[in-house]
Design a binder for these strands. Sequence first.
DNA 1: TGAGAGTAGTTTCAAATGAAACTATAGTCG
DNA 2: CGACTATAGTTTCATTTGAAACTACTCTCA
Lengths: 144, 144
Amino acid sequence: MPLDLAGFLPYRLSVLANTLSRELAELYATRFGITIPQWRIIAVLGQHTDVSADFVCARTAMDRVTVSRAIAGLLARRLLIRRVSPADRRCSQLKLSAAGHRIYGEIVPLARGYESALLAELAPAERDALTHALSLLERRLTAR
Amino acid sequence: MPLDLAGFLPYRLSVLANTLSRELAELYATRFGITIPQWRIIAVLGQHTDVSADFVCARTAMDRVTVSRAIAGLLARRLLIRRVSPADRRCSQLKLSAAGHRIYGEIVPLARGYESALLAELAPAERDALTHALSLLERRLTAR
DNA sequence: TGAGAGTAGTTTCAAATGAAACTATAGTCG
DNA sequence: CGACTATAGTTTCATTTGAAACTACTCTCA
């Protein structure tokens, strides 16, 4: 009848995710002076160029307010270039500046390294099982 | 070279955990008028009685400030009883009130049900693989 | 003993968050 | 056209958060 918090999946995921986020936030902040929302935006713009803020919202699972403020911060540091879309003057077209690309080039291997270190103790089959299970859970949640 | 955020483990865990937390927070709020920190405290006091706030901190992975405030809220709603420890007057001894136990009795099956629904699409072996992988990651992180 | 160091818990303050209101532009249809 | 609805993005405001300072008590050891 009693429920053990330490075995309760939402609790475990929350603690784990928050620990990772804190560590990564610290890493990104000291190395590059950016926040996690900013990193996510850079990650999206490293793959897709001249996209709108709403596109970034969809890809980063962040709300508009967070994205708007993170973009403002990146613009202030000239890591991003923003133009108004000529086709639809409500939309912006965002892309990395040269400085933004430089940070992207440095931060991606760092992020990958962090992830690898984290997964280092899992056997390949265990990693696959984890990513597979996460996919199923994600699917369950996005399908309401 | 480009990194896909959707496949980046810390990102996936963060989004998943935040989605679950939001849903559960909504559930606990509408049904019982409590927050997630408050629920965690109730969960601990359902298993351990007459423990200190610091004990609760350790078991819930929440910081002192959060715990202090959540306890204040629960005391205000008379779901908790707090005494000063006679052995060490700095420490409190916390336990659920009768009303607190009643909520505990209702919320535990609800939480379990939520977890089961979440895991419903995973085969038993997949669930085991998930919990096993989470244990390994937890171990990696608590060991610095 | 009693001064200094340490621990339990609370309060304060500044930063992060997100819902709701707002601005500006675009599309619809009478 | 021109009113109405909808969308992109920003700003405002109230709430949540956690680091640091603070209070109160305990422990150590000279």
